[in-house]
Amino acid sequence: MQARPTDVRLEFLKYLLVGGLNTALSAAIILGVQWAGASPVVANMIGYGIGVAVSFALNSKFTFRTAATRHAALRFLVVVLISYLANLATVLSVLRLTHAPYLAQLSGIPVYVILGFIGNKYWALRNIPVRAEG
Results as ranks from 00 to 15, higher is better:
Val78Ser: 10
Val78Trp: 04
Phe62Met: 09
Tyr48Lys: 04
Ile46Tyr: 02
Leu88Lys: 06
Arg65Glu: 15
Thr6Tyr: 01
Val42Gln: 05
Thr90Ile: 02
Ala53Phe: 12
Val130Thr: 14
Val78Pro: 05
Leu115Asp: 10
Leu10Asp: 01
Phe12Val: 01
Leu106Glu: 08
Tyr112Cys: 11
Tyr84Val: 00
Val42Tyr: 03
Gly119Ser: 05
Leu17Lys: 04
Val111Tyr: 03
Val91Thr: 03
Val52Gly: 06
Val80Lys: 10
Asn22His: 09
Arg9Val: 13
Phe12Met: 07
Thr98Gly: 03
Leu85Pro: 08
Arg70Glu: 14
Ala73Thr: 11
Ser39Pro: 02
Gly116Asp: 01
Tyr84Phe: 11
Leu85Lys: 07
Ile30Phe: 00
Leu81Ala: 14
Glu133Tyr: 13
Thr63Glu: 01
Tyr102Arg: 08
Ala28Leu: 15
Ala27Met: 12
Val54Tyr: 14
Ala104Cys: 01
Val42Leu: 14
Gly134Asp: 10
Leu115Gly: 15
Gln2Phe: 14
Ala24Pro: 06
Asn127Gln: 15
Ile82Asp: 08
Ser26Thr: 13
Tyr15Gly: 01
Leu103His: 03
Glu11Asn: 07
Ala132Ser: 14
Pro129Gln: 06
Tyr15Trp: 13
Gly37Ala: 02
Ala124Asp: 08
Ala89Trp: 09
Tyr84Ala: 00
Phe62Trp: 14
Glu133Arg: 14
Ser55Tyr: 10
Ile50Arg: 05
Ile29Arg: 00
Val79Arg: 08
Pro5Ser: 01
Leu77Pro: 08
Ile118Phe: 12
Val80Asn: 15
Val18Pro: 07
Arg70Asp: 13
Phe56Ser: 06
Gly119His: 05
Gln105Trp: 00
Gly116Arg: 04
Ile82Leu: 12
Ile29Tyr: 00
Tyr122Gly: 05
Gly119Val: 06
Ser93Gln: 04
Gly47Asp: 00
Ile50Gln: 05
Ala86Gln: 06
Pro5Cys: 04
Ile114Thr: 11
Pro101Ser: 03
Pro110Arg: 05
Ala27Asp: 06
Ala36Glu: 01
Arg126Cys: 11
Pro40Tyr: 05
Leu16Thr: 10
Arg75Gln: 13
Val80Ala: 12
Ala24His: 07
Trp123Thr: 09
Ala38Gly: 02
Tyr122Ile: 03
Gln34Lys: 09
Ala100Val: 06
Gly108Asp: 09
Ala89Cys: 11
Leu81Glu: 09
Arg65Asp: 09
Leu88Met: 14
Val18Trp: 03
Ala27Phe: 15
Leu17Glu: 04
Val54Phe: 14
Gly108Trp: 03
Ile128Leu: 13
Ala132Asn: 14
Tyr122Leu: 05
Glu11Gln: 12
Ala24Trp: 07
Gln2Cys: 09
Gly134Cys: 08
Ile118Cys: 10
Val8Gln: 12
Arg70Gln: 14
Gly47Phe: 00
Ser107Thr: 11
Ala104Phe: 00
Leu115Cys: 13
Ser107Asp: 09
Leu10Gly: 00
Glu133Thr: 15
Gly32Pro: 03
Phe12Ile: 02
Phe12Cys: 05
Phe62Thr: 08
Phe56Cys: 06
Pro110Trp: 10
Val111Asp: 02
Ala89Ile: 07
